[in-house]
Design a binder for these strands. Structure first.
Length: 228
DNA sequence: AGTTGATCATCT
DNA sequence: AGATGATCAACT
């Protein structure tokens, strides 16, 4: 029998992962939820990570809250990305938390950002709020690694942002810094604080920040996929 | 508070 | 309308 069902185990290799991801293309979130025995929330207001969790389940990713890649054995990270009717991203993409202390001497080549983005399975999902959550369709997946140009774009932004962090300027950084990679708050709320470096090199408390891919970057990466 | 999964809601 | 800054949930 060939009933479509979530992978019960982590995929053995890239081909198995990609094959399963391709099977999901064209199906709705409601169908995938039903087949997985889940009930979709009415909207994502209080369940912002629901789609990501659903796709993790279908693709056999190690569940949610582990500090490693989704497919550790394959070195692959899973990212669902909300898109509009033309395939363009509706949101920026969270990459990882930014380290705000202990950064003297860190370099791009061994950074968390570069490691996270080394190989990513992108799964586009219709994201317009006019479409009821259960009716939104999953798109065709893209297994991606940064090409030399993309790596260079990311490196430049990362170095600029990390320089400011190291120099105690984290609170002067806004989301406008960076062409393709930005730094924004990543916290439960504005009361959650973490340690960082102040302008005089002293410890300060500030909002935890995360690195996010700007939409121009993910739009280009998805577009490259659509034409090839 | 920190990790994972992200989108919301307000402002320009 | 689109981007920025703020926030939600589950688990540890």
């Amino acid at each position: 029998m060939h009933t479509l069902q979530p992978l019960q185990h982590p995929p053995e290799n890239e081909a198995e992962l990609l094959l399963q991801a391709r099977r999901l293309a064209g199906l709705t979130l409601g169908e995938l939820a039903f087949l997985a025995g889940l009930t979709p929330p009415a909207d994502l207001k209080r369940d912002k990570g629901w789609i990501g969790m659903l796709l993790e389940r279908w693709l056999g990713a190690s569940a949610g809250s582990k500090p490693e890649q989704d497919f550790a054995a394959l070195g692959i990270e899973l990212k669902t990305i909300p898109i509009d009717s033309l395939g363009r991203p509706l949101e920026t993409t969270f990459v990882c938390v930014a380290p705000l202390t202990g950064n003297t001497g860190v370099i791009w080549e061994t950074s968390h950002v570069r490691h996270k983005l080394q190989r990513v399975l992108w799964v586009p999902v219709e994201g317009e709020r006019a479409i009821p959550l259960a009716e939104r369709r999953v798109g065709s997946p893209l297994l991606w690694s940064p090409d030399p140009h993309e790596d260079e774009q990311l490196r430049r932004d990362w170095e600029e942002l990390m320089d400011l962090i190291v120099l105690g300027q984290v609170e002067r950084i806004t989301a406008r810094h960076g062409e393709v990679l930005q730094l924004r708050p990543k916290a439960a709320n504005s009361k959650a604080l973490t340690e960082a470096v102040g302008a005089q090199g002293q410890p300060i408390l500030t909002l935890p920040r995360g690195f996010y891919l700007k939409k121009n970057f993910t739009a280009a990466l998805l577009a490259r996929h659509f034409i090839t």
